[in-house]
Amino acid sequence: MKIAGLTWWRNNYGSVLQAYALQRVMNEFENIDYEILNQYSGKVASVDNFYHKIKTFGIRKTIHRIVWKFGTKKLRDRNRALQKFVDEELKISDKRYKVNYIDSANGCYDGFICGSDQIWNPELASLDSIYWLTFVKTGKLKIAYAPSIGIDQVTKEQRKMIRDNLNTFNAVSCREESGRNLISSIMGTEDCETVLDPTLLAERSVWDHICPPRRFTEKYIFVYLLRGTKQQRKLIELYAGFINLKIVTMPFLDNEHINKYDRKFGDIKYWDASPSDFISVIRHAEAVFTDSFHCMIFSCLYHRKFYLFPKIGAHQMNRLTDLQNMLHISPRMLEDNATVRDILSMKAIDWNIVDDIIREKRMKSKSYLKKALGMA
């Protein structure tokens, strides 16, 4: 059975790695031929992609994004490292499916899976986008695997659109419990299941296989802030000085919210990390500070002591707090008035409990996929 996946699979480490993870898991199943549907142009830096971005975001924001990605050699190096991983590790459809003729994909595949990432967030993609599989013809398999809806409330009109979309699915799931509750209330049933993000669904051996050796010989703490504030970075500097460790950081990760303090922050600025390097630098860190969902996941997989900074907006916070609650991890959030003493006094994580929960939920999530594919 030939299955196509619809997701975000470039531009940042989390998106690329979750796409890779679902690809690996899907291709473990017998008689399943899975590939990721190509909704993008072949390369990030292309004329076709440039015009698409202008149409989607407008000229001003598009120019801003281009400067962020390609404005300096270091940013270009990061982009090349991401592209190289995509080219070598992801199985992308040879044919590109633009929105206006994506329905032609029905002739090539037996079914479609949408997910993971925030592809269902109405603030990031419209409710009639391809990520709701609205183009799929009757009789084709339609499965949602761990998409994130990313919001807590919907309007009456949004509720109707979401319900109409999901009534055509063979199987519906969500990544966060808060999202599952919202979708269940919209559908009026309990058919929506909570499943693991693909990066947790894949066995740790998958990540061990692509994880390169330790990059930095001296001990360090790793800081991965998509946004973050000057105040948060100064707290990390105080902590690093107190325990006498270097800071490894990846500057300017979110093009919409570049923090100028990043220019001076960190002892080692790791600009050109590939997705594999991203895993490695987490794996070998003494501690991790982050506001990233996927950085938190890999910290858990590799038993790294980690600390969280709040996201802006309750629905953005849900991704972090839902995962924390699911894994029975005591609160790791550092608020604005946090001190080094607060960091040092934070309760240690029981990794045996975390591992047991991941194993149990991994089995349930794979069972969900197998059932949805008609294999159970």
Rank of each mutant, 00 (worst) to 15 (best):
A4C: 09
Y20I: 07
Q23S: 05
N31I: 06
V44K: 08
S46I: 04
V47T: 10
H52S: 09
H52E: 13
G58Y: 07
I59W: 11
R60M: 08
K61D: 10
R65F: 00
E89I: 00
V99H: 06
V99P: 02
Y101M: 09
S104K: 03
Y109H: 00
Y109W: 01
D110N: 13
G111N: 03
P122K: 02
S129N: 12
Y131L: 11
W132K: 04
L133Y: 06
T134F: 00
K142M: 13
A144S: 15
Y145F: 11
P147L: 08
Q153I: 14
V154S: 05
K156Y: 10
E157K: 15
L166G: 03
A171Y: 06
R175L: 08
R175D: 09
S184L: 06
I186W: 09
I186V: 14
T189R: 07
E190Q: 13
L201T: 04
R204C: 08
S205I: 12
I210G: 05
T229H: 08
R233L: 07
Y239F: 13
A240S: 15
N244T: 13
M250K: 10
P251Y: 03
F252P: 02
I258E: 11
D267W: 07
Y270N: 11
W271G: 03
V281G: 03
E286V: 09
C295G: 12
K311R: 15
Q316E: 14
M317P: 01
N325T: 14
N325D: 14
L327K: 11
E335M: 07
T339K: 04
R341K: 12
S345V: 07
M346L: 04
I349H: 08
W351N: 01
D355I: 10
R362K: 12
S367P: 03
L369R: 12
A372N: 10
A376S: 12
